[in-house]
Computed example of a mutant assay.
Amino acid sequence: MSVPKGKLIIIGGAVDMNTNLGSQENIVKPDHLKFFEQGILKRIITESAKQAGSIVEVITTASQIPDLVGVEYIEAFNYLDVKHIGVLDIRKREDASNPEYLERIRKADVVMFSGGDQLRLSSIFGGTEFLQILKTRYENENFVIAGTSAGAAAASTNMIYRGQSNKALIKGEVQITAGLGFIDSVIIDTHFVQRGRIGRLLYAVASNPGMLGIGLGEDAGLLITEGTTMEAIGSGLTILVNGRKMAETNIYDVEMGSPVSIKNMRVSVMSIFDKYDLLQNQLAIKKTVKVEDGVFITAPGS
């Protein structure tokens, strides 16, 4: 398998209930509102070859409030002195074949998938020329693909698309389908710590121990380079669930609707600047981290 030349950034998302949306109190606001604090959104631009001169395309397909999401991301990137920002609100599969949209993603330096419903992403983009262009550019160019919440969950070859947290370890509750396929051998869940989704990831990994489970907290992200090296970014926590040394599970024996047992699942926690090698399955913890003016920095030589 070839080593991707592009960079993949997956982010756990954030919910802000102090909305400006009137009575729509339960709507998830655009995730950039928390990104400024520890610089996740800025890191996306820093990792782009053209940095502030980048052409950014925001894909709001997963969102139920695409107009608002698009405006908020334009304002967020403008705040970072990025001026070339477009919004692609692709609502159906035929839109993904629009020649104008295909040309825009061919010219973009950064593509950002917003939050919402990951099943919309897989069902609208799966098997399209649009998705193939993104994959080809990611494999062969210095190209950044970023996704938050649903956009992160859909980034892997396999994705979780439903499952109640409090019933996750009941056989059949967690549903998995094909994702967008930017990265193999992992499965990603988001809003992980805040919504208590450990059961969903344990179930997913128990059903396929060859996958590494990645649970992204809010304001937590991973920068993935060369398809194998993951660096934790943002102020939040990322939980890793590794089933390769799992001793036993009864997931294949019990009937649908029955509780599942798992023995010796390995769990690790990543915080900012920690790195994980997907080839070696090794976590390297950053030993020295300082905070200056509310921003995390690494100490020289640490």
Rank of each mutant, 00 (worst) to 15 (best):
A168D: 06
S2Q: 14
E231H: 01
E37R: 13
K275F: 06
G53K: 09
F35G: 14
E57P: 04
I272Y: 09
L33S: 13
E37I: 13
L102I: 00
S2D: 10
L202C: 06
D89P: 07
E94D: 14
M230R: 04
L212E: 06
I65R: 02
E100G: 14
S156L: 11
N20K: 14
A146H: 15
I170D: 12
E248F: 12
S48G: 09
L283R: 06
L8V: 06
F77H: 00
V269W: 04
L119K: 01
L237S: 11
G39E: 05
I10E: 09
N98C: 02
I65E: 11
G227T: 09
E231S: 03
K107V: 01
G116Y: 05
E72D: 10
I233M: 07
V291D: 08
I74H: 01
D253V: 12
V186E: 03
Q280E: 13
I11G: 01
A178R: 15
V3N: 12
K245Y: 10
D67N: 10
K50H: 12
I9E: 00
I124N: 08
V69G: 04
A206Y: 00
G301W: 01
I160F: 10
Q282M: 06
G115L: 09
A168I: 03
L134A: 00
T177K: 15
E218Q: 11
G6E: 01
Q282G: 08
N242T: 04
G127I: 11
S207F: 09
L131P: 02
P99H: 03
A178H: 15
V69D: 13
A108H: 06
I272K: 11
D89C: 03
R93D: 06
K287T: 12
H84E: 10
L279A: 12
M17I: 14
I297R: 03
V69P: 01
S302I: 00
I262T: 06
E218R: 06
V254R: 02
G196V: 09
S97T: 05
T60N: 04
P300R: 07
M265Q: 00
E94S: 15
Q24R: 15
N20A: 14
I133G: 03
F130Y: 02
Q38N: 07
D189G: 05
V69L: 00
V205K: 00
A299C: 07
L237N: 10
S268L: 11
R197S: 07
E100F: 14
D16I: 15
G115P: 08
L201Q: 00
A152Y: 12
G163V: 05
M230N: 05
M159N: 01
L202W: 06
I44T: 10
P259F: 09
S48P: 08
E218G: 11
F192S: 02
R120N: 10
G215C: 08
N250T: 03
G39K: 02
G217L: 11
V267M: 14
G181L: 02
Y203F: 12
I74L: 07
E141K: 12
P300T: 02
G179T: 10
K167A: 11
L201Y: 00
P300S: 06
E292M: 12
H32C: 13
I59A: 08
R162I: 13
V3E: 14
N78R: 13
V205R: 02
D81T: 11
Y252S: 14
G22C: 06
V295G: 00
G196F: 01
Y79M: 15
